[in-house]
Amino acid sequence: MPVRLHLPGALRQYAGGASVLELAGGATVSELLGALGGDHPGVHQRVVDELGALRPHVNVFVNGENIRHLDGMATSVGEGDEVWLLPAISGG
């Protein structure tokens, strides 16, 4: 089973309108997001910066858990996992 990556509305225009991408499982969130750079560079560059770091106001949840409370970008992902990209609460 692939990893299902759920996209927020603001990023769907960079994925052909898709709300969910089914991706081959990377071993970690970093690898999963890195692989986005191939087919969906517009999503990729809006989620991570040039150094591969998660942008500060983007949250990634793996099976409902924020990766900032797990192992960050080193959090494991595997077949059948559900991953959400969501804009964090921020701004004024």
């Binding site: 560079p41 517009g42 560059q45 910066d49 040039e50 150094l51 770091a53």
Partner: peptide
Amino acid sequence: PAEGNVRFPAGTDAAL
């Protein structure tokens, strides 16, 4: 632009 058009190149250890 789908991809960032002002990006620090590899080796600079910097991000816009």
